[in-house]
Amino acid sequence: MKIMYVINSFGSGGAERHLVALVRHMVRSGNAVLVAALTKQTVGGAKNLRTELEAAGAATRVLDYPGARFFHDIGCWFKLFKLTRAWRPDILHSHLPRSDFAASIVKVFCPEMVWIGTLHDAYVKGVYSGYWVFPFVGWLWRRADALITVSGHVRSWANQVLGVPIDRLHVIYHGVPIGEFPRKTPPPGGQQAVIGCLARYEPRKGMDTLVRAMPRVLERYPEVRLILAGSDPNGYRQVIRDRVSELDLDQHVEVRGFCDNPLGFLSELTIFALPSVAEGFGMVVIEAMSAGCPVVVSDIYPLNHIVLDGITGLTAQAGSPEAFANAFIRLLDDEPLRDSMQTAGHKWCLEAFSEDRALSQVTELYRKIQSDGDMTSSGV
Results as ranks from 00 to 15, higher is better:
residue 348 W to N: 13
residue 259 C to G: 09
residue 260 D to K: 14
residue 355 E to D: 08
residue 96 L to Y: 03
residue 64 D to S: 15
residue 111 P to D: 14
residue 270 T to W: 03
residue 310 G to I: 01
residue 363 T to V: 07
residue 12 S to F: 00
residue 233 P to S: 04
residue 237 R to Y: 11
residue 124 V to K: 04
residue 299 D to F: 04
residue 228 L to G: 02
residue 316 A to M: 03
residue 56 A to Q: 09
residue 170 H to I: 11
residue 355 E to F: 15
residue 79 K to M: 09
residue 220 R to F: 08
residue 323 A to I: 10
residue 332 L to I: 06
residue 151 S to T: 02
residue 258 F to Q: 08
residue 288 A to N: 07
residue 154 V to Y: 02
residue 65 Y to H: 10
residue 192 Q to S: 14
residue 354 S to Q: 06
residue 115 W to K: 02
residue 127 V to R: 10
residue 318 A to I: 00
residue 198 L to C: 08
residue 221 Y to Q: 10
residue 334 D to I: 11
residue 155 R to W: 08
residue 211 V to G: 07
residue 142 R to G: 04
residue 6 V to Y: 04
residue 96 L to R: 00
residue 180 E to A: 05
residue 84 T to V: 04
residue 25 H to I: 02
residue 373 G to Q: 15
residue 162 L to C: 06
residue 249 L to Q: 05
residue 340 S to K: 06
residue 379 G to W: 11
residue 171 V to W: 09
residue 258 F to S: 13
residue 37 A to V: 07
residue 145 D to R: 12
residue 267 S to A: 10
residue 370 Q to C: 13
residue 219 E to F: 07
residue 103 A to K: 07
residue 234 N to F: 11
residue 302 P to M: 11
residue 22 L to P: 04
residue 325 A to M: 00
residue 173 Y to Q: 04
residue 236 Y to W: 04
residue 110 C to K: 14
residue 94 S to R: 01
residue 145 D to S: 10
residue 338 R to S: 06
residue 320 S to G: 00
residue 226 L to D: 01
residue 186 P to S: 00
residue 334 D to Q: 10
residue 6 V to E: 03
residue 96 L to C: 00
residue 60 T to P: 03
residue 55 A to Y: 14
residue 176 V to L: 05
residue 332 L to G: 04
residue 284 V to F: 13
residue 355 E to G: 08
residue 360 S to P: 01
residue 142 R to W: 07
residue 309 D to H: 15
residue 364 E to R: 12
residue 98 R to Y: 14
residue 358 A to G: 06
residue 291 A to M: 15
residue 75 G to M: 03
residue 281 F to D: 03
residue 176 V to C: 05
residue 340 S to I: 07
residue 362 V to N: 07
residue 171 V to P: 09
residue 15 A to N: 05
residue 132 W to E: 08
residue 245 S to P: 06
residue 364 E to W: 06
residue 240 I to C: 09
residue 133 V to A: 01
residue 115 W to Q: 00
residue 316 A to I: 13
residue 362 V to S: 00
residue 300 I to Q: 11
residue 295 V to T: 08
residue 361 Q to L: 14
residue 240 I to T: 11
residue 128 Y to P: 01
residue 328 F to N: 07
residue 45 G to M: 09
residue 330 R to V: 10
residue 378 S to Y: 02
residue 10 F to H: 02
residue 126 G to Q: 01
residue 364 E to D: 12
residue 100 D to L: 15
residue 54 E to H: 08
residue 259 C to I: 10
residue 166 I to F: 07
residue 70 F to G: 08
residue 193 A to I: 13
residue 257 G to H: 10
residue 311 I to Y: 15
residue 10 F to K: 03
residue 380 V to W: 11
residue 110 C to Y: 12
residue 180 E to Q: 12
residue 300 I to G: 01
residue 90 D to T: 14
residue 335 E to H: 10
residue 221 Y to R: 11
residue 217 V to S: 03
residue 39 T to S: 11
residue 347 K to C: 05
residue 86 A to D: 05
residue 247 L to T: 02
residue 116 I to P: 13
residue 45 G to L: 11
residue 142 R to P: 08
residue 219 E to R: 15
residue 79 K to N: 09
residue 325 A to W: 02
residue 342 Q to C: 03
residue 268 E to D: 15
residue 249 L to P: 00
residue 324 F to E: 02
residue 336 P to R: 06
residue 74 I to S: 08
residue 14 G to V: 01
residue 45 G to V: 03
residue 190 G to F: 05
residue 27 V to H: 02
